[in-house]
Design a protein around this nucleic acid. Sequence first.
DNA 1: CGAGCACTTGATCGCTTTCAATAGCTGTGG
DNA 2: CCACAGCTATTGAAAGCGATCAAGTGCTCG
Lengths: 247, 247
Amino acid sequence: MNAPSHTVAHSCTDCPIRHRAVCANCDAAELAELEEIKYYRSFEAGQTIIWSGDKMGFVGSVVAGIATLTQTMEDGRTQMVGLLLPSDFVGRPGRDGAAYDVIATTDIVMCCFRKKPFEDLMARTPHIAHRLLQMTLDELDAAREWMLVLGRKTAREKIASLLSIIARRDASLKPSGNSATMVFDLPLTREAMADYLGLTLETVSRQISALKRDGVIQLQGKRHVTIPDMGRLMEEAGDDSDGGFLV
Amino acid sequence: MNAPSHTVAHSCTDCPIRHRAVCANCDAAELAELEEIKYYRSFEAGQTIIWSGDKMGFVGSVVAGIATLTQTMEDGRTQMVGLLLPSDFVGRPGRDGAAYDVIATTDIVMCCFRKKPFEDLMARTPHIAHRLLQMTLDELDAAREWMLVLGRKTAREKIASLLSIIARRDASLKPSGNSATMVFDLPLTREAMADYLGLTLETVSRQISALKRDGVIQLQGKRHVTIPDMGRLMEEAGDDSDGGFLV
DNA sequence: CGAGCACTTGATCGCTTTCAATAGCTGTGG
DNA sequence: CCACAGCTATTGAAAGCGATCAAGTGCTCG
């Protein structure tokens, strides 16, 4: 384990997250500058990418794979505070220490920039600063949505909320006709879901079984999920029926 | 009730939040531009400043007083997702609709800018955009800290966490010697505290009584709080003892 | 085949919620 | 001046939901 991270070369123009990441607004010249200071790193599933409190020498984007941001209390209680998907940004310009653990949930590829050069570039490139502001505001909204889930929803509603979020995100990546039925693989273990939802893994397991028993979801194996009726799932999540995701 | 909001004129140079708000980094020329498009509005305690879903014609800063950001589910469950203190920014450049209710908890004064002129100004004023990014990143960190509180802390720890946050913020405003003892007034009702913490108001009341009984806090009346030993309160909150706020 | 891991399911416990009654305070009007 | 309404807060008793403790299943990999 903890295999050395692996470096691959790619051109920004071919990049799968080119139009969604922090570089989305950049023109050709700006992209060329980024290209000069960027490098790729890979991490294996389970590896800790950054330890909370460590000095962070780089910032970057998730290119492929999934990572999580988590906080841990002294007695071991842990809470996931962010789910990092392809195109999401990691690190905070202007701060040295990491505030959270960043852990690779799947094998992952990151496009990294050493912090100082990136900060310099950002200072003279409004396109980057503006895009980063947009992305940060979106993350803040997501965090606030999640506060409602953590503070006020029941275990069943929490599970339904998580499933509907994963389903919607998956749908946005592969727009394969917009039927009410959705199919996807859970990218998280029961324990990771519990850490996200503020539950125990046993409760997660029980509520998934209950949703399956009630026909809200279908399971093939432990991870492959079919949602026969998205509207129904949204109701179970306590969200205003079918609103929201059509907007 | 719902008295018309009241307009007062102030110069930016005298502004109490001049060095902490979104305009903190502005030079004299930039400040003059802001001065031209700004206007003040006052709201009474209890008034809703913005309704979730409404079109927002303005953005702005809290100058004095306290407001909250809250989300409400159809069945009435509510979760506070932000506490707006003097210098905090309200509204999101680049989006029309408000995502949350903004409610004045105390009488409040805001420094407002019509959204369009502010967006135009921000587009050509990196100082503003950069400061807004900083502030948004800070809010994101605060939201993530709060996710740990909501997801993993006990009722007692939640109350202690809220008290320590209010105490620390108060201390940062009036740096009156840094003894371990702290004194302040709660700016929130028991119900508002419950909405912040994901609890019921009865549980809030019970836990405050318990902390008082155990000597962690002292109460004069319902709202005036004395913390004899800040370290003790931090332990009760489940945070690493006295660390954190000395940094 | 056995070890290890992710997951499921059952039984019980306990914390927080729910329901309910009461206290204290403020402002209003007879 | 006191009675009363309305609000915030406290406290008690009972119920319920999720946590905890504990087996047990199924899968993968060596």
